[in-house]
Nucleic acid binder design. Structure first.
Length: 393
RNA sequence: GGAGGGGUGGGUGAGCGGCUAAUACCAGCAGACUGUAAAUCUGCCGCCUGACAGGCUACGUAGGUUCGAAUCCUACCCCCUCCA
């Protein structure tokens, strides 16, 4: 393979960067957001839709595709690109995340993870070698090492143990990976412990992967903690390789994390929110099912250039959601994905223009976080003030 | 005309002497969702006081029995089924 990543420009005042990622299924411009399509489909979207929204790369999931339809099916039908008729780049996740999110179904040891299928109860044993092999078979352009992703609440000991296991697994994936034209990314772990994060970044970069992911963040920890982890790690990752922050996809997070040097993001958030009727606008997100939209003749986002906003009123979307019409999910997903891809385009352009800092500031001052985020920030401040009041002894 | 069944909060519909402002579902209102077991989940949903809590009015209507009734009795009004 030729060079995977080339850096075009960096923002002198932040860590933000613009670059180009080149795969055998085309090039994409970074920073980029990759919508999640675990089962070989971004829900409610055709590949044609994705293309016209400006989506570059899509995500698929090893765990889900392995269980259904099964790797041999996809293999016989010509690989994942052909199977799902998406001819742009694909990134497959190893299924490591599922080890944690489906934790009650699994047993984990140094060798690998014993799963019970959530579909039919059958038992499966996934190892680093096996998931790498599966991902080679699927034929994605970028694949991920098999890792363990413990929840945010785990204590230091558990986080360290999971991190160390992930390190060994990363090495094992690296050793068996051989498919040409396919890049295997390492994943930095360490939870919210700066010390572990640095340790992990040192180890993972020593394995010399073509790209590096940051895993185990955006799992409910305070935003400030996620930011400080990124601030710690990013300078340790080689500048000439792509950096991928796993599982991040809210508008404010994307802006904040690009500023810290991230090139690639994925998240189920924009598409899932869309299906649940929560739509992004430049000032905040709205639940289009709310009564306030019943008679609203304007598009949900008057600044948006997407098919949905160019053709339909908020009142119509409101009606589609209330009546549970299938079109609701499609139109809403079109909008949210376009909102995010446009945001990434704007970010990139501002980096190239040298105006990223002002773009970031004006976006963040305009964009109102959700009640939950505001509340979480209040709680954090409250806890800190309590701690400082109670800690004189 | 005769026999039987039934009338419960916006709707459907449980409850059949105290634990019942009343199960459940729907509708309604709001919130959540970040490497997707998610077109999902959570909360509220008689009226009044901002909330805690409390007060008021409620199970067709009017009486009655009882310490206590949506639940038992009587009368009336209405609805449904069957037979003539």
């Amino acid at each position: 393979m030729n060079q995977l990543f080339s850096l075009e420009k960096t923002c002198p005042d932040t860590g933000a960067r613009a670059g180009i990622l080149t795969t055998s299924h085309g090039s994409i411009l970074t920073p980029t957001f990759m919508p999640v399509g675990s089962q070989g489909t971004v829900k409610a979207m055709t590949p044609h839709d994705l293309e016209s929204l400006g989506v570059g790369m899509v995500l698929a999931n090893t765990y889900h595709l392995y269980l259904r339809p099964g790797i041999e099916v996809i293999s016989k039908l010509g690989g994942l690109h052909k199977f799902m008729s998406w001819h742009g780049p694909i990134l497959t996740d190893s299924g490591g995340f599922q080890v944690f999110s489906l934790g009650h179904l699994s047993r984990i040891n140094d060798e690998g993870v014993l799963f019970r299928s959530h579909i039919d109860g059958s038992e499966h044993f996934l190892t680093p070698e096996y998931t790498t092999k599966i991902q080679e078979e699927l034929g994605a352009d970028i694949i991920m090492v098999f890792d363990e992703c413990p929840p945010y609440v785990e204590n230091f000991q558990n986080i360290r143990q999971a991190m160390e296991r992930s390190h060994v697994w990363a090495e094992r994936c690296r050793r068996v990976h051989s498919r040409e034209g396919q890049a295997l990314f390492g994943i930095v772990h360490g939870g919210t412990y700066a010390e572990l994060r640095r340790q992990s970044a040192t180890f993972i970069t020593s394995l010399d992967f073509p790209g590096y992911a940051i895993g185990g963040l955006s799992l409910g920890e305070p935003k400030a903690l996620m930011h400080s982890m990124l601030d710690d790690i990013m300078p340790m990752l080689p500048g000439n390789k792509p950096r991928y922050l796993m599982g991040v996809g809210s508008p404010e997070d994307l802006v904040e994390c690009v500023a810290r040097g991230v090139d690639m993001f994925d998240s189920a958030l924009p598409t899932r929110l869309a299906r649940n009727g929560a739509l992004f606008t430049s000032t905040r997100r709205y639940s289009v099912g709310n009564a306030r939209f019943k008679l609203d003749a304007m598009p949900i986002d008057t600044d948006c250039d997407c098919y949905t906003c160019r053709n339909f009123s908020a009142a119509y979307l409101h009606h589609l959601f209330k009546s549970e019409e299938l079109l609701a999910y499609h139109l809403a997903t079109v909008h949210n994905l376009r909102f995010i891809t446009r945001l990434m385009e704007q970010i990139r352009q501002s980096i190239l223009d040298g105006t990223f800092v002002s773009f970031k500031e004006s976006f963040l001052s305009r964009y109102q976080p959700t009640n939950a985020v505001v509340r979480a920030e209040q709680k954090q401040k409250w806890l800190e003030s309590r701690q400082s009041n109670n800690s004189p002894d």
